[in-house]
Simulated scan of single mutants.
Amino acid sequence: MTPRLPPVLSAIDLPLVELQCAALDGELFALDQCFCSIDEFDTIHLRARALGVILDARIIAERMTAAWVWGAALNPPSRHQLCVAIGARTRPHASLNALLREVVIGDDDIDTVSGVSVTSRLRTVLDLARFSEPFGVREQSAVRVLMDEGALDYEHCVSALTSRRNLPQKRVALERLAALQTPVPLACVS
């Protein structure tokens, strides 16, 4: 019986040059900073594992990084967006190009996907609506997909925002979510 490779390979497993050559040969495909066999399907679990290779357990994927893990964005952000609970005292691995914020976050705002902490779909929607600059097509599309796949309607998101006191950028988020309620013109759908 032939030993099976792990689903996600990194420079920890094999030299980076070998991984890149295998990708050029069509045996692997790149997934963020890792590589996967072409037999693997690009799923939320595979994306989370690719992040988990270099993330400390206290670090949480948020905003566009979380949207990418959830499958609401095709590609990871050029700079990963991560957070930790206030007082966590940790940093991402030096090889990871990332922004790290300390945030107030509850257990119900965090899901675990293949051992990696990711903001819930609802928290991701709220954070994208509150903090994305710009709130462009990519971010709007991610919010729509997260709301659809998470069975989150507009009223649920507004209720989650308004129930939290002293929330920065609440008004901006409410305006952005309201604007997303207008139907997309058919000319924009392709």
Rank of each mutant, 00 (worst) to 15 (best):
F135Y: 12
D127S: 13
R164M: 11
L180H: 14
R49T: 06
R101G: 04
R164F: 02
V184A: 06
A30W: 03
P15R: 03
V53F: 12
D107F: 03
L16W: 06
F35Q: 03
A11I: 06
E62W: 06
R138K: 14
T162P: 05
A72N: 01
E133F: 10
H45Y: 08
V116F: 06
Y154T: 06
V53T: 14
S117L: 04
E27F: 10
M64L: 15
L24E: 13
W68Q: 05
R138E: 15
P168A: 10
N97E: 11
R47F: 04
A85E: 15
Q20G: 01
A30G: 09
H80F: 11
A73G: 04
L5F: 09
S132F: 03
D42Q: 10
L174I: 13
N97R: 12
L128H: 02
A179C: 07
R138T: 11
V103C: 08
D42M: 11
M1E: 14
D109Q: 12
D127Q: 13
L16P: 05
A88M: 04
A129P: 03
P134Q: 12
I105L: 10
R138M: 14
V116T: 09
V103I: 15
R58V: 07
S114F: 03
P168N: 08
I110H: 05
H80C: 09
T65E: 02
E27V: 08
A179F: 11
I110C: 07
V158L: 04
L55H: 10
D39E: 14
G52S: 01
G136H: 14
E133A: 10
Q81L: 06
L74N: 09
I110A: 08
D13C: 09
R130Q: 12
L167K: 07
A151Q: 15
R123L: 00
P3Q: 09
A179K: 12
A22K: 07
C34D: 02
V184D: 07
E139A: 02
I86G: 12
I105W: 01
H93R: 09
A30I: 06
A160Q: 10
A187C: 08
P185M: 04
V145C: 13
L96T: 05
R171D: 15
I110R: 05
E149A: 13
I60C: 02
A85D: 09
L177P: 01
R58C: 07
T2H: 09
